[in-house]
Amino acid sequence: MQDFIFYLKLGWEHIISLDALDHQLFVLVVIAAYTIKDWRKILILVTAFTIGHSITLALSIVNIIKLPSNWIEFLIPLTIVLTALGNIVMKNKKQTQNKTNYYLVLFFGLIHGLGFANTARVMIAKSQSIAVPLLGFNIGLELGQIVIVILILVLLFILLNLFKINKKDWILFVSSGVFALALKMTLERIP
């Protein structure tokens, strides 16, 4: 049980810590086009990301998938750039019904999962089963993402309802800001 709690905390910190800006930006831009009424769709998106993250993390730990870390560090912000760009291009369309978002987020989760793989590979002893660490880590990750989603949705609710901010302006503002930050990160990490 101690191992499970250890990895649960590790997953939580992986998304909540100040070092997790790329992860937080990704969650922000993924849900930027949604509102609190879309909470089920958002939960599915966040879970799709965690599933993708889990798959490549597991495959990487058992050495089935291995990519150079400089390419992974480049691809992670690139996924954020592409997601933000998608929001900007699609801001006038009803994104909340776009089923390709689920597949795209799942695919991008696969890439993000590789980012933590080297650390996880070192932490999980060869004799140790990967089931408990992966389960704990991914539940912690999912809980952290849900907390971030709730904070973003509360902020969005306040902006839309109290300050009467236009939703399309919100999408454009958030997506443009995230696009700029992620593009800078991407360019700095070109292999």
Rank of each mutant, 00 (worst) to 15 (best):
S69P: 00
I31T: 08
L135P: 06
R40I: 14
I72P: 00
D3K: 12
E188M: 07
L75S: 07
I165A: 14
G52D: 03
L67R: 03
V62H: 00
D22L: 02
Y103D: 03
D22C: 02
H112N: 01
S127I: 07
N166G: 09
K41E: 08
V62G: 00
L143D: 09
I124G: 14
I158M: 12
G86S: 09
L156H: 03
E188T: 10
A120F: 14
M1K: 01
R40W: 14
L151Q: 06
W39F: 09
E73H: 02
K41C: 07
I72E: 02
D3T: 13
L8S: 07
L45Q: 07
L10T: 10
L67D: 02
K41N: 10
F108D: 03
I148V: 15
A32T: 08
I146V: 13
K91P: 01
F26Y: 15
L159K: 08
F49Y: 05
G52Y: 02
L135K: 04
F107C: 14
L159F: 14
K167I: 11
E73D: 13
T100S: 13
S127R: 13
G109F: 12
L181A: 15
G113D: 11
I5A: 10
S176A: 10
S54H: 02
I61V: 15
L153I: 07
I124H: 13
L141I: 15
W71I: 13
R121Y: 15
V132H: 00
L28P: 00
F108V: 03
L141P: 01
K66G: 09
G113R: 11
I171Q: 04
L25T: 05
M185I: 08
D3R: 12
L28G: 00
I51W: 05
I15K: 08
K41D: 11
S69H: 03
N118M: 15
A182V: 05
D19L: 00
A32K: 09
F163P: 05
K66T: 13
R121F: 15
W170D: 05
K164H: 14
H112D: 01
I61K: 13
I61D: 09
S175G: 06
L153E: 11
I130D: 06
N70E: 12
P68H: 11
I130F: 15
Q145H: 09
Q145E: 11
L8T: 07
Y102I: 08
I158H: 13
R40S: 12
L162H: 11
F74D: 06
V147R: 04
D169E: 12
Q128M: 15
V30Q: 04
T47Q: 10
K66W: 10
Q2I: 13
K41R: 08
L160H: 03
F108I: 04
I42K: 04
L18P: 03
F163V: 12
L141F: 14
G177L: 10
F137P: 07
F157R: 11
P133G: 10
W170R: 05
F4P: 10
L57H: 01
L183Q: 05
W12L: 15
L75N: 00
Q97V: 12
Y7H: 03
K37W: 08
I64Y: 11
P77Q: 00
T56G: 01
L57C: 00
T186Y: 05
G177H: 13
M123Y: 15
F163N: 08
D38K: 06
